[in-house]
Structures are given as structure tokens and as C-alpha cells.
């Protein structure tokens, strides 16, 4: 199995507070890795370090064997890292199709083209991507008018535009209904399998996490306190104490 992402002794402080404290973990291809923990545990910081929004104080982040510390998000994307946001971020003045075209234009290095019209560029590829996430029938709708769950799927299509080998998803199912949630995660799992990519995601919905993740890492107060398969994490008394609570842990047994 190939390691896609390797985090080693990663740390980041804000005004003296260690938001991320000496964290190490790996992510392999074809794997769905969930990152969970209480609010303020350092999940977002950790995420933003990996996607380049923040620069680590120390430690290393290696993607596909290349150390990416200090690279900008747009350079990290070029390495083959796609991402979706906790609060969806699409181009609201464009249609669904144009959003995906935008990502493809960038992928093919055509954003400075001032001659051709966008209308005719990368149409087939875009529609194919939208078909993959089940949004092809809504390709001409303005993103500003879409339902939230649909926006999330558009984001996924955009994230897949550069054939990423690693996908970073920040709370992919936040704001969705229960069935919509599992459908999105099933879709994600399928893409992970067929394209052998790795996914790192954060999530508050424990059902989603314990049902879909291959492996879970738990953060608390900036430190990595547990990692392993869902069953091990569920049984971990430390995790029950700081995060899940005993009843929730018991309830989750049925799901796994």
C-alpha cells in the first residue's frame, strides 16, 4: 500500500496556545480517514496546515513524497490535492457547469486565455464530472439557487477536476439530511475505491464517521489521543471520556 500523506511531529501555535501539538499520522491510498474531536481540538488548524492555508511552526507534511511545508494552497492543488469546504464555497455568479469548467480551465492552465469563449471549452469533461456526482441534470442552474446538498456535490465535482490523489473534506455532510449524508459518503467511498485516492475528512456526525471511515484519528487539545479502526476507537475509554460519552459509544456499536 502506498502512503499518500504523511504527517510528522506537526505543531502550530497561536498567541502562545498550541492549537496543534506534535501530531503524526499517515494516510494510505484507497483509505477514508476521519479526524474527530471536540470543538477547539485543533481539527481545523490541522486541516488548514495540510491544505496550505496556514504554515506550520515545526514538523513536516509530506504529500506523495514531497514536503509541502510553506507551499501555497494553489501550489498544493497542483500536486493533486482536491478539497471541499465546511461552508460551501462556489462561484455563485456562475452555473453549475461553469463552476466545473473553471476548475478544468485552471487544471489545463488556460485561465489567461483571452481569445476563445468559455462556452465551448471542456464541455464533455465537465459534464462527465457532473455525471459522476449526479448533478448533470442541473448543469445550467445558477449555483446561487441550488439546495445545500446539491452545492456540496458541485464542490465534490470541482474538487475532482484535477484528478486528485488526495481529497481533503472539511465536514462534508454538515447541513445535510441523514439520508443525503450517507448518500454523499457512499459516493465518496465509491470514488475512493475506483480511483484509489485517499480521503481525509473531519466530521461531527458520528454515524457518518463510524459507518464510512476506514480509520479514525481523535484529537483533543491539539494532541492526537487515539487512532485506529472504528471499533477500537469506539471502545477507547479515553475517547469516550473526552468526546463521545458512554451512551453515544454504546449506540454506535450497532452502526459499525
Amino acid at each position: 500500500m502506498t502512503t499518500i500523506l504523511s504527517i510528522h511531529r506537526l505543531s502550530k501555535s497561536f498567541e502562545g496556545i498550541r492549537a496543534v501539538n506534535n501530531i503524526s499520522f499517515d494516510l494510505n491510498e484507497g483509505e477514508l480517514l476521519a479526524m474527530i474531536g471536540p470543538n477547539g481540538a485543533g481539527k481545523s488548524t490541522c486541516f488548514n496546515l495540510i491544505n496550505g492555508q496556514l504554515v506550520p511552526d515545526s514538523g513536516s507534511i509530506v504529500i506523495f513524497g514531497k514536503k509541502i511545508n510553506g507551499l501555497k494552497p494553489r501550489h498544493i492543488w497542483r500536486l493533486g490535492v482536491g478539497r471541499t469546504f465546511q461552508i460551501t464555497s462556489t462561484f455563485i455568479s456562475m452555473t453549475v457547469l461553469e463552476n466545473v469548467q473553471m476548475a478544468l480551465l485552471s487544471h489545463h492552465g488556460r485561465t489567461l486565455n483571452v481569445v476563445r469563449k468559455v462556452q465551448n471549452l471542456f464541455m464533455d469533461e465537465s459534464i462527465e464530472l457532473l455525471e459522476r456526482v449526479g448533478m448533470a441534470d442541473q448543469q445550467d442552474r445558477a449555483c446561487g439557487t441550488l439546495a445545500y446538498g446539491d452545492l456540496k456535490r458541485v464542490e465534490l465535482a470541482v474538487a475532482l477536476a484535477n484528478n486528485p490523489k488526495l481529497l481533503l473534506m472539511d465536514e462534508p455532510t454538515a447541513g445535510m439530511g441523514p439520508k443525503e449524508r450517507s448518500r454523499l459518503m457512499e459516493l465518496t467511498a465509491e470514488i475512493v475505491q475506483t480511483h484509489r485516492i485517499g480521503v481525509l475528512f473531519t466530521e461531527h456526525d458520528m454515524e457518518v464517521v463510524f459507518k464510512h471511515a476506514d480509520r479514525i484519528i481523535v484529537l483533543n487539545q491539539g494532541k492526537l489521543v487515539a487512532q485506529g479502526c472504528p471499533e477500537d476507537v469506539r471502545r477507547d475509554t479515553g475517547v469516550q471520556e473526552i468526546y463521545l460519552g458512554r451512551e453515544e459509544a454504546a449506540r454506535l456499536e450497532k452502526i459499525i
Binding site: 494553489r74 501550489h75 462561484f91 455563485i92 455568479s93 473553471m102 489567461l112 468559455v118 477536476a161
Partner: peptide
Amino acid sequence: FTPFGYTLRACRDSALRVDSIG
């Protein structure tokens, strides 16, 4: 209507998103 114009609008709509698509 060209890729450049679209990119510009993309930058206006969401700085976060354009950065994350390179």
C-alpha cells in the same frame, strides 16, 4: 466571455475557492 474574464469573476466570487483550484 473568455477564460480570463471567467477567472476574474471567479476571483470576485470566492477568493478561497480560486486559491483551492490552483
